[in-house]
Design a protein around this nucleic acid. Structure first.
Length: 419
DNA sequence: TCTGGGGTCCTAGGACCC
DNA sequence: TCTGGGGTCCTAGGACCC
């Protein structure tokens, strides 16, 4: 039988932090979002305290300090590196892998029967935990949606779970629809209004009625949960990505144009570097700046976009356009709290059509400048050199006061071991 | 004082056309 | 009484995910 498996790293960001802080292994640990704003990862100890996911840090500060919780600012450099170790290990063990997020991957499981599937999952779990050191949970089923549920089910138990046929049927009566992948707050409320609470309730309903009430998404859900898989495994890698976004909230709001402009410059540098790293060029640029989401200024947000005459990845050209766009909507009355850029409409840099009237000598020089530019920044850390002002610290830069070292990707921050 | 950042996909509604 | 109808394309916004 051919099953779909799901690998999920438990409390991933917390586990990454613990990897280099063994003293925190059975201690409560939490990781904060950018700007140290929200809780985005919790160890089991913190979950048991009743601290919800995504809650603003300031709301639970007292609870956290009372329980002596160790908090970290998010350290994506570290998490990305650990993630790639997990994924490459998984790739050695199974034929087909789809990286779904930084801490999850779907994969194909070819096994003679369910017992063998459980065995195989155990083997994957053991290998990853031994080689990489972060705890993982695995699920397998006929469809992605059920596999996802299976991986959650034994998270605190054996860590592996296969749900096929009768085993899955047994679950449906007690599985709340709100727990199902793809059903968020809105949809689960609408389902409740129609007296649909558990998976069994939904499966007992008439499919055409479900289609009418809940559209395409409802149909897919219905099929996935009836073991009629809709979503296939597909390599959704970075080459097929459709947009690159770089945005960030400021530490404090600002009405100054120079501050917002600095932020925009920084984000253009950041997004363009990523674009080149992927070997892509873009034809779409959007610039946005918005006030605090929770203030009276909510409706005064601005954004502007443009289509570029030819596909590019040159930071300097993007900077020019970005600042023109900012000029077009910037409003000196508004206290901006967040700014960013979005790049889109990608094409491959190798096969991209050059501008019909572009001067090829200039283009070749530009390319060499950018190669050197990227090489220097890669060697000495991001944004060591920039085109014009692109300050990564200052009035707009977010707070990251509890950051851990980049243990695995920066020579200066390697952990030292004393014998 | 203090509420993330980066994505994808679907839908409804308007514009336009014949 | 009776206001065409149906198709396509585009876009903004919503919902969801991690």
């Amino acid at each position: 039988m051919k099953l779909i498996g799901l690998l999920d790293c438990n409390n991933f960001f917390v586990s990454c932090e613990r990897l280099f802080r063994p003293d925190l292994h059975d201690r409560p640990v939490a990781v904060l979002s950018g700007n140290d704003g929200c809780i985005v990862a919790r160890s089991n100890e913190v979950k048991d305290l009743g601290v919800p996911m995504g809650v603003p840090h300031f709301k639970v500060k007292d609870v956290l300090s009372e329980a002596a919780v160790t908090c970290f600012s998010s350290n994506f450099t570290l998490y990305r590196d650990v993630s790639s170790r997990v994924m490459s290990t998984l790739r050695e063990l199974v034929p087909e892998v789809e990286t779904y997020s930084i801490d999850e991957a779907f994969f194909v499981l070819n096994v003679p029967n369910e017992e063998a599937a459980v065995e195989q999952l155990r083997h994957i779990k053991q290998t990853i935990e031994q080689r990489v050191g972060v705890p993982v949970s695995l699920g397998a089923a006929t469809s992605k949606t059920i596999a996802k549920y299976a991986s959650e089910k034994e998270k605190r138990g054996s860590g592996v779970c296969v749900l096929v046929g009768k085993e899955w049927q047994k679950e449906t009566g007690t599985t709340q629809l709100s727990q199902v992948w793809g059903i968020g707050a809105r949809l689960s409320e609408r389902l409740r209004e129609h007296n649909l609470h558990t998976v069994a309730d939904l499966l007992a309903a008439d499919r055409t009625r479900v289609a009418k009430l809940f559209g395409l998404g409802g149909c897919r859900l219905f099929d996935e949960l009836s073991e009629q898989p809709v979503y296939r495994l597909g390599e959704r890698n970075r080459q097929t990505q459709k947009s690159i976004m770089s945005t960030r909230s400021f530490k404090t709001a600002s009405t100054k144009k120079s501050v917002v402009a600095d932020a925009i410059s920084y984000h253009v540098h950041h997004a363009a570097a990523e674009l080149r790293e992927l070997g892509l060029q873009c034809r779409y640029l959007q610039v946005l700046a918005r006030p605090n989401h929770y203030s009276d200024w909510t409706l005064r947000q601005g954004s502007a976009e443009c289509t570029l005459p030819a596909p590019i990845s040159d930071t300097r050209v993007l900077l020019t356009h970005a600042h023109e766009l900012l000029d077009s909507f910037f409003d000196a009355e508004v206290p901006y709290k967040k700014a960013g850029v979005v790049l889109g409409w990608f094409s491959d840099a190798d096969i991209a059509q050059p501008d019909l009237f572009g001067e090829s000598v200039e283009a070749a020089t530009a390319e060499r400048v950018l190669d050197v530019f990227d090489a220097i920044n890669q060697k000495y850390g991001r944004e060591v050199i920039t085109f014009g002002r692109a300050v990564s610290a200052g009035a707009w830069a977010p707070a990251r006061e509890l950051l851990s070292p980049r243990y695995t990707t920066n020579w200066l921050e390697l952990p030292s071991v004393k014998a």
